[in-house]
Design a protein around this nucleic acid. Structure first.
Length: 272
DNA sequence: AACGGCACCTGGTCGC
DNA sequence: TGCGACCAGGTGCCGT
């Protein structure tokens, strides 16, 4: 569910409720996430004040006085702000209780997410250190993408979803950015022109920014920190629209497989 | 090194 | 209604 816009939506949703609060207790009901939640994590973060929230790639970072909580939502995770304490559901694996009575509740049916804590500089953390630039910053330019793409043979869709190249472009937004750019998703990366890189970079930025402004994409069950769904789904041009008419030319949207993931494109609009 | 494919896990949907 | 097959927003790791 969560790509960059969904993580950013979550961060913005929870921040006002948790900033400058002290963590009074952490409850881990099920530690079996992608990596086991470290058994020492609850006591390490307990009594620490929350100084800020950040997002790097699809990681939600909660800055504490002495270290950083690293939260990843995986494919099916969500974090919600609760003002009371309803009975935890089946997949409510972690609660962060704050000194103002607010509670952050982490739900993740598939358990592909992660909760980790580090006191080392965050940029040196193994999960963060090798990441490419943020797509919404000036570090991500057409020039950068063009240079990186030379002599690469992989498909362009795979390339822009590679977090070492640029972070935060997941399956939905990769499909959408390629549509907007008129590029065939299986085009070999090395044959993408400079002009096409300009289009691609511009459209990746646009589609992510628009999705953030709409509160992310809710396909099944995504909700932001405030429990509200995202509205970007209605802006989707190709993702999940196999057999439906292209919004631009009416040609029926087709589906490919790209290493076992759905790839959606318009055969008329994406011929480059 | 770069590439493609698979696995991790649960739940929803679809066809029979 | 029940059952099995298949699919899903991410990403680390494996073999080639």
């Amino acid at each position: 569910m969560p790509e960059l816009p969904e993580v950013e939506t979550t961060r913005r949703g929870i921040e006002p409720h948790i900033l400058n609060r002290r963590i009074s207790r952490v409850t881990v009901r099920d530690a079996r996430l992608r990596w086991p939640v470290p058994p020492e994590l609850p006591l390490q973060v307990q009594d620490q004040r929350i100084l800020a929230t950040h997002r790097r790639s699809k990681y939600l970072l909660i800055e504490l006085e002495r270290g950083m909580l690293i939260v990843h939502l995986g494919m099916s995770g969500s974090v919600r702000v609760l003002l009371d304490d309803p009975t935890p559901g089946k997949h409510d694996h972690i609660d962060l209780e704050l000194d103002n009575g607010v509670r952050l509740r982490y739900n993740d049916p598939r358990r592909f997410g992660a909760w980790l804590y580090t006191e080392a500089p965050i940029d040196e953390h193994e999960l963060i250190a090798h990441l490419g630039p943020e797509p919404l910053t000036d570090a991500f330019t057409a020039d950068y993408l063009f240079k990186k793409s030379r002599k690469r043979t992989t498909r362009i869709k795979t390339f822009i979803m590679d977090a070492r190249i640029v972070v935060g472009v997941g399956n939905i937004y990769a499909n959408e950015a390629l549509f907007l750019s008129g590029i065939y998703p299986h085009k070999p990366t090395g044959r993408v022109t400079r002009k096409e890189c300009e289009q691609l970079v511009s459209n990746i930025k646009q589609v992510l920014a628009l999705a953030i402004s709409q509160g992310g994409t809710t396909l099944r069950d995504f909700v932001g920190g405030d429990g509200k769904p995202g509205y970007f789904a209605q802006s989707l041009n190709v993702y999940g629209r196999t057999g439906l008419p292209c919004h631009r030319c009416e040609t029926l949207v087709r589906e490919l497989r790209t290493s076992n993931r759905g790839t959606f494109y318009c055969p008329q609009c994406q011929t480059r």
